[in-house]
Design a protein around this nucleic acid. Structure first.
Lengths: 126, 126
DNA sequence: CCAACCTTGACACAGCTTTGATAAGGTTGC
DNA sequence: GCAACCTTATCAAAGCTGTGTCAAGGTTGG
């Protein structure tokens, strides 16, 4: 159960030491340090490094994307703002009358406000 | 309730026509089109363009970040994968024994698997 | 005490993103 | 029918990302 050094961790996970430092810098995996500052990668970190590789490869995303997702989950005001902005985009109103469409927009806005003030969980329908 | 052309929309929202096309290309705001293909920006789009500006400015994020958030919300396998990867990072285990720590890691993994297989909604504690 | 690690920091380069400018051509309204 | 729009496509520049490499210096273990 010895912790690995950065070079050892790099070897067993397929990253380079350089990238492990980069991944740490963007906040994704921050290994413990020894007294003197050496990084220590344990089994958990190694596992996460490997699954991180898969995650990037399988979904065509970048480290920056994962870092942003992490930021979203840590910065509640941010995720709230992003969510409410995205929320205001259900589907395009087809050919509706101007009045009808305006009312629909206003109701949508009201729905968003309501969703924001009552901070309930929203369910993602399967 | 007239729809604005791209130049008019750009003027009233502070974007450039070029950027409105770009914002459309990355999927954030896709205005309706006339028969002949001209973009039509309605009040809803204008509002969203303005709030998009605020969103970017207030939270130091980029269009690509918002586009990724949109992708997250549309691509369930992706968001599931990202979430479960991020989930596996509660806090650093302090000085614990190797056995203890290994067990803790395994349990964490089990928790993640459980959370994945029973696709229930997770609650974001306030 | 020295070889072989580790640390941070800097320079660098390829490739992608963001944004502008410009070209070639269609639409519209007077 | 022409001025003033619009469209798409392309070239280009500026900036960011991901990655390598090197330098100057600390740590470690025989």
């Amino acid at each position: 159960m010895e912790a690995l050094t950065i070079h050892e961790a790099a070897q067993t996970t397929g990253w380079t030491p350089r990238m492990l430092r980069y991944i740490e810098r963007i906040g994704l995996i921050e290994p413990a340090r020894t007294e003197s500052g050496y990084r220590q990668y344990g089994a958990g970190e190694l596992q996460r490094l490997r699954t991180l590789r898969e995650l990037l490869a399988e979904h065509e995303i970048g480290l920056g994307d994962v870092a942003f997702a992490l930021r979203l989950r840590r910065d509640e005001p941010l995720s709230g703002a992003v969510d409410s902005w995205l929320e205001a985009e259900p589907q395009r109103p087809e050919a509706v009358s101007a009045d009808e469409w305006l009312r629909w927009e206003q109701e949508k806005h009201a729905r968003i406000i309501a969703a924001l003030t009552t901070n309930e969980t929203m369910e993602t329908a399967a």
